[in-house]
Design a protein around this nucleic acid. Structure first.
Length: 461
DNA sequence: ATGTGC
């Protein structure tokens, strides 16, 4: 091990973690160029190579590596929140119509095709321009970009580093949600769930308000790019760069190598795909609300609060032992928490720090938080979700999709899903207690809860 | 996560 491992958790969460998490965090701590600590966030669980909830930063000037396993197959998977000026009283009577309209307008499920029809050449521009492309083509508002990480565009993207296969998989998937734990949810702000009213008010959040949250990523595009470069790194890692790893799933290459740079530029294309994807979905969400409530999206106050990813590597400056270094921070199932004073904080949030979006299960709710200065310890990182407590197979054994839908509807949550198996897999009971995860990040001083959001309606794959 | 596994 080149650095120690640090797990951020309460005792209960620590006891719930599978033992593979610790083995994996130890493996990560052996990789070339790693700095300070190999971290696990409180929602950590077993993943491909690196744990989900893993954070590792590599000094790129000192032979530090880039590793697809530290980023995840779903490159730049992330969260976006759009506000409305509607209240629970406005929306509840129309929730079925609203959710059905959303379900019709936003394709869900594996292999779902979007409504955006493009030539493969034009698709290259999507991969290089991300959310900028979407907004320029009428999918979203210019000000959405001011409230998106990196302004919705990783500007180092180079489409020539992306395989034809990846292009073929991605070019018809813009504006699609996907499957698994990806979802789009209509949520409500209950007065008693506002935890930090000063910041909530500044962000335009009020008691009774309805907001929209989504969780999706780079679909087949990012998956293929990750697959392509995992293969490439495996073939050169030992022979060309002499890097020995304890687990093949930790395939990596020096950041400043031909292969490392090619993946860095291809990864940015997957990042841009996911920005364009979520941006285009926001456009459809506004259309669905407009149709249901017979008002323009502007009149419905549908401005974007924020969007932030939890599966990416980013070049950032951090202090290590009092020296500022250029680090490649890998966050896999970990949200960036840029506290006030960091250059990454968008202008609107400069005084309080960046929002953090932590998605929970469709039964239990989600959180908005704000980054805290203690995140300087974790390379500006915090948790990203609840974290599963059991396999999808086990969840399907315990719950029946149809039954769960009926039970949720009786509790005021209307869900539309592509398949009933997927519903059972995502049962609230298959996840850790999100309140506990959030509390662990607060106690650690890395992020502070602003509001807990509870579901009214949800669409999923 | 994924045109879901070999």
């Amino acid at each position: 091990m080149r650095v120690p491992v640090r797990v951020i958790a309460t005792e209960k969460l620590l006891n719930e973690m599978d033992s593979e998490v610790f083995d994996q965090a130890v493996n990560v701590a052996t990789l070339p160029g790693i700095q300070h600590r190999s971290f696990v966030m409180p929602d950590g669980h077993w993943g491909y190579g690196f744990p989900i909830g893993g954070v590792a930063a590599f000094d790129v000037e000192e032979g530090g590596v880039i590793s697809p396993g530290g980023i995840g197959y779903d490159v730049n998977c992330g969260m976006r929140v759009v506000l409305t000026n509607l209240t629970e009283g406005d929306v509840r009577p129309h929730i079925r119509e609203l959710v059905n309209t959303l379900f019709k307008k936003i394709p869900t499920g594996v292999g779902g095709e979007g409504f955006v029809k493009l030539s493969k050449q034009e698709f290259g521009r999507v991969l290089e321009e991300g959310g900028e492309w979407s907004v320029r083509n009428g999918y979203g508002w210019k000000e959405d970009l001011e409230r998106t990480e990196l302004r919705g565009m990783a500007d180092w993207a180079d489409v020539s580093k992306v395989s034809k296969k990846a292009i073929d998989r991605g070019f018809d998937q813009i504006g699609t949600l996907g499957s698994g734990n990806h979802y789009l949810e209509v949520q409500v702000v209950k007065e008693e769930n506002i935890k930090y009213s000063e910041v909530a008010k500044k962000w335009g959040i009020f008691p009774g308000q309805v907001v929209v949250m989504m969780h999706t990523g780079s679909r087949g595009e990012g998956h293929q790019i990750a697959t392509d470069y995992l293969d490439l790194f495996l073939s050169v890692m030992r022979s060309k760069y002499g890097i020995e790893v304890s687990d093949k799933q930790l395939a990596c290459a020096p950041f400043y190598s031909n292969e490392g740079q090619d993946y860095w530029k291809a990864m940015a294309c997957a990042v841009n795909f996911s920005f364009a994807n979520r941006q285009t979905i926001v456009h459809r969400v506004r259309e669905a609300f407009s149709e249901t409530f017979r008002k323009d999206a502007e009149a419905l106050g549908m401005s974007q609060l924020f969007e932030i990813a939890h599966n990416r590597a980013t070049l950032e400056r951090h202090q290590v032992n009092g020296v500022t270094r250029q680090l490649l921070v890998h966050r896999k199932g970990a949200t960036a928490a840029y506290y006030a004073g960091r250059e990454e904080v968008p202008a609107f949030f400069r005084d309080e720090g960046s929002p953090v979006i932590i998605g929970g299960s469709m039964e239990t709710g989600s959180y908005l938080l704000v980054a805290m200065p203690g995140a300087s310890e974790t390379f500006c990182s915090t948790a990203h979700g609840s974290g599963r407590t059991m396999s999808r197979a086990r969840a399907k054994h315990i719950w029946r999709g149809e039954e769960l839908l009926r039970s949720m509807e009786s509790r005021g949550i209307y869900v539309r899903a592509q398949g009933m198996g997927g519903v059972a897999e995502e049962a609230g009971g298959a996840y850790k207690n999100i309140d506990e995860v959030v509390e662990a990040t607060h106690v650690a001083g890395i992020s502070r809860p602003v509001v807990r959001l509870v579901p009214l309606g949800n669409i999923k794959g």
